[in-house]
């Protein structure tokens, strides 16, 4: 399990990286945190002619707050996100989901951009980005464009990134008032990819549900937004019966596949159970029960 040979470049900035990407095109692969790509190299399931290592592009690692949103550079480490007070207060759903991403030693290297661009169907970050309508900033030969999460994740490990393009930033809306969040996951072992994970965010307005945001991972070829379930909540409120109805609807909205660890029916069932659990915990937080346990 040793990587095949490749040419290697470690550009010092995003601009240099883009230039290299332009030069080598489809022969090149971008190396972010390496927690997914290096295993693929070691298994020789990936054999790019050129590796462009982004780890020295220091201009891609930052966490910045703007009015109403937070911008994360693509090379921001998961570990930096985990321990960022800003993320904790402004993007608590991302903070909670981060605890489910691998282990501390893999989060040391793993990056937010790498996880999003890899688009593993069972990964947590794409579900968070999908739930929160993240904006993904993509830079390429024609300049910069902003892709909404709903249009970024296209299929199994496929994104809207075009040849010569790279993800440089992700923008997430900061926590609104009267909001609660929860990331629920079922996996076989701590740190594994999800069998099913649910990202939930609800914003209340007195007794009403002003908005609900739900997305699932592990339940289809890409992270899937559960809009039909959100609508049930936005229309009918956050009562127990309605939460159950939304959870049941969520299970109908997913298109999971079977593997060694879980059948289609079981995954669908877990979407139901975890959506309900996530909504209840999110609601509790929205109502001020901020001390809800991280994991139920």
């Amino acid at each position: 399990m040793k990587p095949p040979p490749f040419d290697y470049y470690a550009p010092a900035s995003a601009a240099e990286a883009l230039e290299l990407l332009g030069r080598y095109g489809a022969d090149a692969r971008l190396l972010a945190g390496g927690q997914s790509l290096v295993p693929l190299l070691n298994f020789r399931l990936s054999a790019p002619a050129v590796i462009i290592d982004l780890n020295r592009a220091t201009d891609l690692a930052y966490i910045k707050e703007e009015t109403g949103r937070v911008r994360l550079g693509a090379m921001t480490r998961q570990r930096a996100i985990e321990f960022s007070p800003l993320v904790k207060s402004r993007l608590p759903l991302l903070a909670e989901a981060t605890r489910w991403v691998g282990h501390l030693p893999t989060r040391t290297r793993g990056t937010v951009g790498g996880s999003l661009a890899h688009s593993d169907p069972a990964a947590e970050y794409p579900a968070v980005a999908t739930a929160l309508d993240a904006e993904l900033v993509v830079r390429g030969p024609a300049g910069e464009r902003v892709v909404p999460a709903a249009e970024f994740f296209l299929g199994l490990m496929t994104t809207a990134l075009q040849p010569g393009e790279m993800l440089v930033e992700v923008r997430l809306p900061a926590l609104a008032s009267n909001s609660g969040w929860a990331f629920e996951e079922f996996s076989r072992r701590h740190g594994d990819f999800a069998i099913v994970g649910i990202a939930a965010m609800v914003t209340t307005e007195r007794d009403r549900c002003r908005s609900a945001r739900l997305a699932a991972c592990g339940a289809g070829p890409v992270a899937v937004r559960l809009r039909g379930a959100e609508e049930i909540l936005e229309q009918g409120g956050l009562g127990d019966l309605n939460i159950n109805a939304a959870a049941a609807r969520a299970a109908e909205l997913v298109d999971p596949s079977a593997d060694l660890h879980a059948s289609v029916e079981y995954r669908r069932h877990l979407v139901h159970v975890l959506t309900r659990r996530a909504l209840k915990r999110a609601l509790e937080r929205a109502r001020g029960g901020g001390a809800a346990p991280l994991r139920s």
Binding site: R188, R189, H190, G191, D192, L260
Partner: peptide, 16 residues
Amino acid sequence: FLSGSFIDYLVPSASQ
């Protein structure tokens, strides 16, 4: 063969 990595062959960890 379906269990060709430690991602699919589940060795119990300390939390199990």
